[in-house]
Measured scan of single mutants.
Amino acid sequence: NQASVVANQLIPINTALTLAMMRSEVVTPVGIPAEDIPRLVSMQVNRAVPLGTTLMPDMVKGYA
């Protein structure tokens, strides 16, 4: 099963992502692949992401 990127904390809108904000977890539906975590660092979210939410490509500016 593919691990996805999950929010490790509440991430406010327009926040630049850091490693501490993300974790890898096997979830359904599948979100951004966990191997993309290094690429996500310093990218901004375009909405508030609650703790435990799977990051989807449309939630991260410049990812999709």
Rank of each mutant, 00 (worst) to 15 (best):
N1R: 02
N1T: 15
N1P: 15
N1F: 15
N1A: 15
Q2H: 12
Q2V: 08
Q2I: 10
S4H: 02
S4W: 02
S4M: 03
S4K: 02
V5F: 01
V6Y: 02
V6Q: 05
V6C: 03
A7F: 01
A7C: 03
A7V: 06
A7D: 00
A7I: 06
N8C: 03
N8H: 10
N8K: 05
N8V: 11
Q9H: 11
Q9C: 03
Q9M: 12
Q9A: 14
Q9G: 04
L10D: 14
L10W: 10
L10F: 10
L10P: 15
I11T: 02
I11K: 00
I11Y: 01
I11C: 03
I11M: 06
P12H: 11
P12E: 08
P12Q: 15
P12N: 13
P12M: 10
P12D: 11
P12W: 06
I13W: 05
I13S: 15
I13N: 08
I13C: 05
N14G: 07
N14I: 03
N14E: 14
N14A: 06
T15L: 05
T15W: 11
T15S: 08
A16C: 12
L17H: 00
L17N: 01
L17K: 00
L17I: 11
L17V: 05
L17D: 02
T18W: 03
L19C: 13
L19P: 09
L19M: 13
A20S: 15
M21N: 09
M21F: 09
M21G: 03
M21W: 03
M21Y: 05
M22P: 00
R23V: 11
R23C: 07
R23T: 13
R23F: 06
S24K: 05
S24M: 05
E25L: 04
E25Q: 06
E25G: 05
E25F: 04
V26T: 06
V26F: 15
V26S: 10
V26Y: 10
V26K: 03
V27Y: 02
V27S: 07
V27K: 12
V27N: 04
T28P: 02
T28Y: 08
T28G: 05
P29R: 03
P29W: 03
P29A: 05
P29D: 12
P29C: 15
V30C: 03
V30I: 09
G31M: 02
I32D: 00
I32L: 05
I32P: 00
P33H: 12
P33V: 14
P33M: 10
P33G: 12
A34W: 09
A34R: 03
A34T: 08
E35T: 13
E35G: 08
E35F: 04
D36M: 07
D36E: 14
D36Q: 08
D36H: 09
D36R: 04
I37Q: 10
I37H: 03
I37R: 14
I37G: 06
P38N: 15
P38R: 04
P38V: 13
P38C: 10
R39H: 14
R39Q: 05
L40Q: 00
L40C: 04
L40I: 10
L40S: 00
L40T: 02
L40R: 00
V41I: 11
V41Q: 15
V41E: 06
V41A: 08
V41F: 08
V41P: 03
S42D: 11
S42G: 15
S42R: 04
S42T: 14
S42Q: 13
M43G: 03
Q44W: 08
V45H: 00
V45E: 01
V45Q: 01
V45S: 12
N46E: 08
N46R: 11
N46H: 10
N46P: 02
N46M: 10
R47V: 15
R47Y: 14
R47W: 05
R47S: 12
R47C: 06
R47K: 13
A48D: 12
A48M: 08
V49I: 13
V49N: 01
P50N: 14
P50D: 14
P50S: 13
P50T: 06
P50Y: 10
P50H: 14
P50R: 06
L51V: 09
L51A: 10
L51W: 11
G52E: 06
G52S: 11
G52F: 07
G52M: 09
G52W: 07
G52R: 04
T53L: 08
T54A: 05
T54F: 02
T54Q: 04
T54H: 03
L55I: 15
L55V: 09
L55Q: 01
L55F: 10
L55G: 01
M56D: 07
M56W: 05
M56F: 11
M56N: 11
M56S: 13
M56E: 06
P57I: 06
D58V: 08
D58N: 13
D58H: 06
D58T: 14
D58S: 12
M59E: 03
M59H: 13
M59L: 06
M59T: 09
M59D: 09
V60S: 01
V60H: 00
V60K: 00
K61Y: 14
K61P: 12
K61A: 13
K61C: 15
G62W: 08
G62A: 15
G62V: 04
G62F: 14
G62D: 11
G62P: 08
G62I: 03
Y63I: 06
Y63R: 04
Y63V: 07
Y63E: 05
Y63C: 04
A64M: 09
A64N: 14
A64H: 15
A64Q: 12
A64L: 12
A64C: 09
